[in-house]
Design a protein around this nucleic acid. Sequence first.
DNA 1: TGTGCCATGTAATGCGTTACATGATTGG
DNA 2: CCAATCATGTAACGCATTACATGGCACA
Lengths: 177, 177
Amino acid sequence: MSLKHAILTLLETEESSGYDLLKQFQSRLGYFWNASHQQIYAQLKSMHSEQLIDFHVEAQANKPDKKVYTLTQAGRDALSEWVQQPLKLGKVNDALLVKLYAGHLADKDQLLEEMTNYRDNHQRMLNTFLAIEEEYKNSSAKEKKNLALPYLTLRRGIIGEQACLDWADEVIDFLHS
Amino acid sequence: MSLKHAILTLLETEESSGYDLLKQFQSRLGYFWNASHQQIYAQLKSMHSEQLIDFHVEAQANKPDKKVYTLTQAGRDALSEWVQQPLKLGKVNDALLVKLYAGHLADKDQLLEEMTNYRDNHQRMLNTFLAIEEEYKNSSAKEKKNLALPYLTLRRGIIGEQACLDWADEVIDFLHS
DNA sequence: TGTGCCATGTAATGCGTTACATGATTGG
DNA sequence: CCAATCATGTAACGCATTACATGGCACA
């Protein structure tokens, strides 16, 4: 049950609405967590009933009202307790690899298209991450210090995406031969 | 719903019991799919009721009987149809990155232990994969040709694990500084 | 007038985890 | 004698996906 902790982590940095959290997951945090709006709203509701978070409604000009959530003390405590606990290894479930494994049942062009599509998607992600890295590198020494840990998670994204591209190139080469 | 297709893929290569499938996921296929025995047995049951697979009971000396499953024609068809369909991008949910992001709430030693543990696990995986790669490289030309696609999925494992190690080293360096 | 963004939700179904349950055989 | 491996399952619960639902504002 870690969507809960991902949300606590984001709220610890800044108060946000469900919609804000969604946007964060979709953009710069896409590397480490993904969740649908339905999941997020449901989770916020249940966290509120557990009193880990609180909210106030904020009216906006020309936009719908939003519920802005903040951590309670109990939420802060739950988060630091969780950070202290050891994790177990995450599991890998990669449908693309299943498909490749069974690739003799598809035709080469089909697989090639799948692979180039995969490559393009990861190239796009990598570009996004590299742009964020540039921003980080151009920030002040003080900011760099504050953002050191988030920066390391970004590095995971960059290194991981680069690995995806390297592998995709190997596969594409093979399929072309 | 892809555990189903992962199982079809394995059965397409060779008939297996639920237990055999579990072992395959745990060992050499660990990189691309993981599933618990409960999940596997439940899935086999439901696939059998959909008539994608068939089984016969095999008695063994000094071991419990086992149910050996094989693909039906419908199963074969379902698999090739699935291989033909485009996939959507898999989602990333990495609790370790959430933890690092919120790492200012933990103490350095705690994080270091978590990271070295992570590093060790991935080193172990990498070693396993490299050993399998050696086997592949020493096999006959004919076998190499047959195993070309599974070999590419293994490459994904090797490249991915290497990326984990590189990243872990960056993080560990940072935490030591 | 239609597309897309902002902003929030409910309901049904499907997938995964945890806990519980059994029982023989092999090797140290 | 104890632990591990082989081999199979049920039941309860929690997490994720898909489909359905609403409604205003901005921009072309």
